[in-house]
């Protein structure tokens, strides 16, 4: 059995602010429908989304096999802007937990934790959905960026029964930080080193280190349809590409159980039509969806 996870920052309603046209909302609905029903994705988390957007998706998409979970309740001056859809015959939702950090008058939204069980296997999987503040609201050297990583790490340890060994944890989100930034690489302990993560089960493995640059090597004949990250910053001066959207796995999926990460099926979803919208300066869209897969493998072979 295989379980597929997608994170997509839809760009529809940043910070809960409704800004999308009906046409843009309709486009998002068609993407969601495609991912859930054609690609057969089992878990889809969406960011920068409001009640109104979810309502549109529920009206326009074929969701008979899916359940939805959202919590847009105000937290301090802002609110969570994420929701998720999951295939109910493959994932059984036990509970959800919003996690925040109150520092001074700021409320940092760390993650929304969803506790699932895989029916038929009795295996718990904890998914943490995060949309961390943008560099505009929390600059790159702010101590708060470290705090986001520290508290996400604390929250993961809270669900892990053993101190030095993490539970079955999958992190999805737009961290507004790249895999090499201290919040993720140091505080969260999401490493690029797969072998080390296998040996030190308190580490997480971040497969998005391999998606920091253009997916295809340069050649004179190439048509420029490859992508150099997950986020396209139209006015970037040194680079327009960032890898802010990531799916990170606890080392439990690197051989400690029969459930393994399928890294070949983990990466950035580059749809041609959507890529054109992202490059278009008149469009609101700027994030690619990212996906990750875990699958059951018979260890005895």
């Amino acid at each position: 059995m295989r379980l597929s996870f997608v994170w997509w920052n839809t760009s529809l309603s940043p910070a809960g602010r409704d800004r999308a046209t009906d046409e843009q909302r309709q486009f998002v609905c068609s993407m969601v429908n495609f991912m859930l029903n054609k690609m057969q994705i089992d878990f889809l988390a969406l960011g920068e989304i409001t009640n109104r957007d979810v309502k549109a998706i529920m009206e326009k998409c074929e969701l008979a096999e899916f359940d939805t979970e959202m919590d847009f309740v105000k937290n301090g001056r802002s609110r969570f802007d994420t929701c998720f859809f999951y295939r109910r015959d493959k994932l059984m939702l036990l509970a959800t937990h919003p996690i925040t950090s109150n520092k001074g008058n700021r409320t940092l939204k760390i993650a929304q934790r969803a506790d699932f069980m895989i029916p038929g296997y009795g295996i718990p999987v904890h998914v943490f959905v995060s949309h961390w503040p943008s560099l505009l609201w929390c600059h790159e050297n702010s101590a708060d960026r470290h705090l986001l990583g520290v508290r996400l790490r604390d929250s993961i340890e809270d669900v892990s029964p053993e101190r030095e060994k993490l539970a079955n944890v999958i992190l999805v989100g737009d961290y507004n930080d790249e895999p090499f930034d201290a919040s993720l690489a140091e505080q969260l302990m999401a490493t690029r080193d797969r072998e080390l993560a296998k040996r030190k089960p308190h580490l997480l493995y971040n497969p998005f280190w391999r998606h920091l640059g253009f997916s295809k090597p340069y050649s004179p004949e190439m048509t420029d349809d490859s992508i150099g990250g997950t986020y396209f910053h139209k006015n970037g001066e040194i680079t327009r590409w960032r890898t802010f959207d990531q799916i990170i796995f606890s080392s439990a999926f690197l051989g400690q159980t029969e459930w393994h990460l399928n890294e070949e099926l983990t990466g950035v979803l580059n749809f041609e039509e959507y890529r054109a919208k992202i490059i278009d300066t008149n469009e609101i869209f700027d994030h690619f969806p990212v996906f990750g897969v875990i699958e059951e493998v018979d260890n005895d072979g």
Partner: peptide
Amino acid sequence: YPCKIILDSKTMYCEDKVGLENA
């Protein structure tokens, strides 16, 4: 610090005096 308040399903970390008062 930090202190942690778990209210129903919500987890609130409190990093300082004002953070705790707000929580």
